[in-house]
Design a protein around this nucleic acid. Structure first.
Length: 631
RNA sequence: GCCGGAGUAGCUCAGCUGGUAGAGCACCUGAUUUGUAAUCAGGCGGCCGUCGGUUCGAGUCCGACCUCCGGCUCCA
């Protein structure tokens, strides 16, 4: 048989030859360094047989940044971890140990709980294995043999019983694991392996199941790569909005109100910049601003359907005989407002916007600064419309998203998820083809990365969720666009159609920033605190060189202050110290004002250190385009 | 909520095996009057997260709770 190499040349091999055989046929060095192969683009263990005509690519230890090559290295590392743990903790039960984004983990059921300090011992045992060297041997066995082999491992047994296809095992040293592979040939390629943490994790990700102990680690083809990774992590920690917020005095947290930020005047400058933009753009795009109560009798939540599904997350307030809940969302309020008049099809669409304070009683363990808060506001809106108007409304929302992502410079952080028709869908396939098509085309039109979550839409309509990654690459749900045919019905929303009959309107729920708090958190991490000029809490700081220049500096700041957020740092410290302070506060522009300065000649310093001498008019001309464009 | 880790001055952190708390920055005062990332000197500042226990004695040991951090679950 013949296989096709990446340069399109053909390699003659005996029938049944494996990837390793192919590598040997090409050269002994390649065979030695080979870690994995791709057959027709799909990863495959080197030990598995090839077939005539298959295009193959052999990955080696030199492909040290290839995600697949790293995954196989880390998968094998997970097996070394499992071997070490079974050595050190007899009686431990093994669950699963896959490679993940930046490393690997293995889930164990320990007879006695282990602690973080135990990791050192385990790490040492792994080092010993690495020094000794390990080879992986693959073997295919029958289901019955597998059951026998793993008879004392309940989790493995469950995996055997639910596995699809043939059962394979991998052996290394004295350790055997049920595993689909692929794996390295041997442990020589693992040049750096580090256990990074310990956590609880539920078996099969279900909180009804027993909790296992998960050990996290990472591994690389070189020591330098590990060091670089750890350094990147450290840098990311410096961008953490929970660190930057208090450091830059934007917001603070108090244990007296977990999950709710205390915003300072500087933080509010950012918050209000978002609010101002939201109001201006909403007005331009035909939204009307409304305001509905924060607190509602729980009867409303029962009627809207939220009580049953999300009642646990509702903050409750007893009031005499009745029970109130702080609103976790604006929808029912907007629907009640809609119902206050008899609506005609001529009134539609009606676009209600409200960025009210919302409360959700999130579990303590899940709170995370501004990104996962108990109190927050969404740039929420509900568009009441007819079926015919859906497409146009959604298109307009996507234009809006497009504008926001450009304005905030976060386009490359964003990606979307389109949730499509579930099994219990309402309506015909043609209708779903239509609505899903509307959303998909809109996504493509604005060129947003997206994936499709098949079957995860609500039964009454598809939805789009917008995500952004934080400094550590963790994705957060930001905005959402959801078509709702259920709540308007439950809350009795109707309008008179041209046919003189009552109809239930569609409601499109939409938040584009998502939570303002979360959005600001992500912005801070994205910019590492160096916010764009128009968002910076202090945009220009004037530094009088000495006492004699204070009045002139104040006058300048006052004039700049008519348009921008400007202040003066009084000469109580040396100029050097005040410049340093301005840099640490990440102020975009500082103007040093002394004997040499006048309106005709200002000493302007940009964040980072670049200096120039310009007139006031030139400075203003330079700042003006830094404000968001008014499309 | 669950597993693991942590909580000392406004901030960043030190405080060995139990003997009664320390530095730098910030802040205040004084001197200095300053030209692009820290002038010098002095001073103020601690319910050592909270409650309980062990002990002659607890920041240190034990327990519970609160909060934070890394995960898991959840996230309308």
């Amino acid at each position: 048989m013949k296989v096709v190499l990446p340069d399109n040349s053909k390699l003659e091999l005996p029938d049944g030859a494996s990837g390793l055989d192919a590598a040997r046929a090409i050269g002994p060095k390649l065979a030695e360094q080979a870690v994995l192969m791709r057959v027709d683009g799909r990863v495959q263990d080197l030990r598995l047989p090839l077939h005539d005509g298959e295009p193959i690519q052999i990955l080696t230890t030199r492909d040290k940044s290839d995600p697949d090559a790293l995954a196989v290295l880390r998968h094998s590392s997970a097996h070394l971890l499992a071997e070490a743990v079974t050595q050190l903790y007899p009686g431990v039960k093994l669950a699963i140990g896959p490679p993940i984004e930046n490393g690997f983990y293995y889930d164990f059921d320990f007879p006695e709980p282990i602690r973080e300090e135990d990791l050192e011992k385990i790490q040492a045992e792994i080092e010993r294995e690495l020094a000794e060297g390990r080879e992986w041997v693959r073997q295919e066995i029958s289901r019955d043999e597998a059951r026998k082999l793993f008879s004392s491992d309940p989790y493995k047994l469950e995996l055997v019983d639910t596995a699809e296809g043939d059962i394979s095992i991998y052996k290394q040293g004295g350790f055997t694991d049920l595993c689909r592979g692929p794996h390295l040939q041997n442990s020589k390629s693992i040049k750096a392996l580090k256990l990074t943490g310990l956590a609880g994790a539920y078996w099969r990700g279900d909180s009804e199941n027993p909790q296992l102990t998960r050990i996290y680690g990472t591994a690389f083809y070189s020591r330098e790569d590990l060091d670089a990774y750890l350094e990147r992590l450290e840098l990311a920690r410096g961008r953490d909005h929970r660190r930057l917020g208090p450091q830059l005095d934007l917001f603070h947290m108090s244990e007296y109100s977990p999950g709710s930020a205390l915003w300072t005047a500087k933080g509010m400058a950012i918050y209000n910049a978002l609010e101002d933009l939201r109001r201006r753009e909403n007005a331009k795009r035909g939204y009307v601003e409304v305001k509905t109560p924060l607190m509602w009798d729980v009867e409303l939540w029962k009627r809207s359907g939220h009580w049953e599904k999300y009642g646990e997350n509702l903050f409750r307030i007893e009031h005499g005989e009745s029970l109130y809940g702080l609103k976790p969302m604006n929808c029912p309020g907007h629907m009640l407002l809609f119902n206050t008049q008899l609506r005609s099809y001529r009134d539609l669409p009606i676009r209600y916007a409200e960025a009210a304070v919302l409360h959700r009683d999130e579990p303590t363990g899940s709170l995370q600064g501004l990104t996962r808060a108990r109190q927050f506001s969404q740039d929420d809106a509900h568009v009441f419309c007819t079926e015919d108007q859906i497409q146009e409304e959604i298109d307009a929302m996507f234009d809006y998203v497009d504008y926001l992502y450009d304005t905030f410079g976060v386009r490359e952080l964003a990606h979307a998820e389109l949730a499509t028709r579930p099994d219990n869908k309402l309506g015909t396939d043609e209708q779903w083809d239509h609505t899903e098509g509307v959303l998909r085309r809109a996504l493509e039109r604005i060129g947003l990365r997206h994936r499709v979550a098949e079957g995860e839409g609500a039964f009454y309509g598809p939805k789009i969720d917008f995500f952004m990654d934080d400094a550590l690459g963790r994705p957060w749900q930001m905005g959402t666009i959801q078509l709702d045919g259920q709540q308007p019905e439950r809350l009795g929303c109707t309008y008179m159609g041209s046919d003189n009959r009552e109809h239930t309107p569609y409601v499109i729920h939409r938040a584009l920033y998502g939570s303002l708090e979360r959005f600001i958190g992500i912005l801070l991490e994205h910019y590492g605190g160096d916010l764009p000029f128009w968002l910076a809490p202090v945009q220009v700081r004037v530094l009088p060189v000495g006492e004699a220049h204070l009045a002139a500096a104040q006058d300048l700041a006052h004039r700049l202050g008519a348009i921008y957020r400007a202040d003066v740092a009084e000469p109580t410290d040396t100029i050097g110290k005040r410049i340093r302070a301005a840099e640490l506060e990440k102020i975009p522009f500082t103007v040093v004002y002394g004997d040499r300065e006048s309106d005709e000649s200002l000493a302007v310093r940009e964040r980072g250190g670049e200096q120039s001498t310009v007139s006031l008019a030139e400075l203003l001309a330079r700042l003006e385009p830094l404000l968001p464009s008014d499309v």
